[in-house]
Design a protein around this nucleic acid. Sequence first.
DNA 1: ATATCAGTACGGCACGTGCCGTGTCGAAAT
DNA 2: ATTTCGACACGGCACGTGCCGTACTGATAT
Lengths: 217, 217
Amino acid sequence: MGACQRGRELSIRHVPYRYRDVMTDKRSQRAADRTEAIMRTTLELGQEIGYAKLSIEAVAARAGAGKHTIYRRWPSKGALLLDSLLSLNEAGLDYPDTGDIVADLRVQIHAAVDLLARPPFGPLFQALIGEAQHEPQVAAALNERFIAPQADKTVARLRAARDQGQLSPQFDLELAMAILSGPLYFQLLITQEPLTHEYVDRILDALFTGIGPTQAY
Amino acid sequence: MGACQRGRELSIRHVPYRYRDVMTDKRSQRAADRTEAIMRTTLELGQEIGYAKLSIEAVAARAGAGKHTIYRRWPSKGALLLDSLLSLNEAGLDYPDTGDIVADLRVQIHAAVDLLARPPFGPLFQALIGEAQHEPQVAAALNERFIAPQADKTVARLRAARDQGQLSPQFDLELAMAILSGPLYFQLLITQEPLTHEYVDRILDALFTGIGPTQAY
DNA sequence: ATATCAGTACGGCACGTGCCGTGTCGAAAT
DNA sequence: ATTTCGACACGGCACGTGCCGTACTGATAT
C-alpha cells in the first residue's frame, strides 16, 4: 500500500510525464511494449487462476519483469487489472442509431452484458467490481473509465429518442439509465444467476411496454 | 519449541466439530457466549478500521479468544462478518400491508436502504458484497440469508397487491422486484453516489406511474 | 553518462495449523 | 457424597508459508 500517493489526476497508472503524449521516441516505445506485456500477462494469469489468487509476484515472474517495474506504474493489483482489461477496449464500442430505440438499446446492452458477464473477461470484471468495494481509487477509476462512458452512450441514445418524440419530454434520462442497468448488475453481483440476453429482453419489454411515448412518465 | 516432546500418545485431539450443538447443556451455552463475544468484537473492529484491514488475528486478540476458536466456527473472514451482521437482525424486519402498495414498498425499501447504505453497518455490508465477488461461499450465504428473504418479502407484498387487483394479472413479480432493487445496488456498488430516500422515491414514482393497474404490463 | 531494466534480497504482516496446559463439564467409580 | 476420570473446548504460543512493498545490484540500451 501507499506507493505513489501523489495526486496524478484521475489516472491510476503512473506514467512519467515524458511518456505521456510522445510515443515517437524509442524509449517510450520500449516502455510501452513492456507495459503491454505486463498487462497481457495479467489477463492470462487472471483467467487461469482467478483474481483472488492472482499476485503481482506471479505476474512479474511470468512476464519476465521486475516487481519494481510493475509497482512503478500501478499502485495496486486492482489498478493493474483495470488497465489490463480496458486496454482491450480502448476504442470503446460503437452503437447503432437505427431509429428504433428499443432495438438499439437491446444491441447496446447485449454487447455490454457479453463483455461483463461472459468469459474470458467477465469473471475478472466481476472480481474487479468486488475489489472496488474496499478500494476507493479502483472504484473511481472503474467508474470514470468504464461505467460512465457506457452510461453516457445509453443516455445519449435515450436523449436522441426523446428528441425525436419517441419518449415523453419529461422522461428522466439518467433515472431510466439506472433502471435499465440496475437489474443487470443486481443479477450479476447479488443473486449471481446467469445473465442472459433473454433476461435483458424481458427487462426491456417490461419497461418499454410501460414507458412508451404515450405515457406521462 | 521442543520442550515436551516425550511420550505423547497419538490421540487425535481435534475431533471434527459438530456445528450446531444442542443448546441445552451448559457447555453449549458457554460456546454460544463465546461465539457472540467474537461476533460483537468483529463488528466493533470492523467499524473502527474497515473490512479491508480487519484481520482474524486482531479479532481474536481483542476478543480474548484463540484463533482456533474462530477458525473452528467460520471458514473465512467473510463468513465471520456475515454471521456477525446477521446476528443483529435475526428476527428480520416486518413490513406493513396498509393496502397502499406504493406506500408500503416505500417503507420496506427505505428500511433496507438504511440498513445497507448507512453507518454503522452499511460500509461493512458493502464490503461483504465485494468479498462475495471472489468467494462463492460468501456469495451463496449472503444470498440465502439476507438477499433472498428480503426479496421474498417484496415479492409477497407485490403478490398481495396483484391479488387485490392493484396490479395487472400479468404482472411479473420477480422481474418487478429486480427492477425495484437493481437501481439501488447499482447506485450503491457501481456509481457509489449517496443512496438516499429521495432517490428511492423517484424510482418508485417513475415505475408506478408507468405500471399501474390499467397497464397491460 | 544516464536511465531503465530484471533479478534478488529483505523486513513485515497475516494466514492457517500444529501442540501445549488449563478449566469445565458429565459420568463412572469409590 | 465424594472422588476420579475422560471428553472437550479453550487461550496462548510458535511455526512455516505466501505475498506485500521497498531497496540494492549489475546488466543493457541510448
